[in-house]
């Protein structure tokens, strides 16, 4: 629902995928080749998600009655 841009995973999707990967890697019947692939993917999610967390600044927008979405100016304390 909240893709930040085309083809890029949202933080939620990334975290969910990461949990999936971990669960799969914990399973006993995994082969080394698959584990390696999952490991690489997982590491990239950890890295990217970490960057998202570190860099993000709350983006606040307002939905108007006519359906327009505009940037919301509020006082930042």
């Amino acid at each position: 629902m909240s893709k930040s841009s085309e083809g890029e995973l949202s933080l939620e999707e990334r975290m969910r995928r990461l949990e999936e990967i971990l669960a799969r890697m914990e399973s006993t019947e995994i082969r080394l080749g698959e584990a390696l692939e999952l490991f690489e993917e997982g590491v990239s999610h950890v890295k990217t998600a970490g960057e998202v967390l570190a860099a993000a600044e709350l983006r606040v927008e307002e939905l108007l009655a006519d359906g327009q979405v505009i940037s919301f100016e509020d006082k930042v304390e």
Binding site: L58, E61, E62
Partner: peptide
């Protein structure tokens, strides 16, 4: 708490 989120306000 969650600065990565996008916030959409409906007044």
């Amino acid at each position: 708490r969650a600065p990565w989120t996008q916030v959409l306000i409906r007044d």
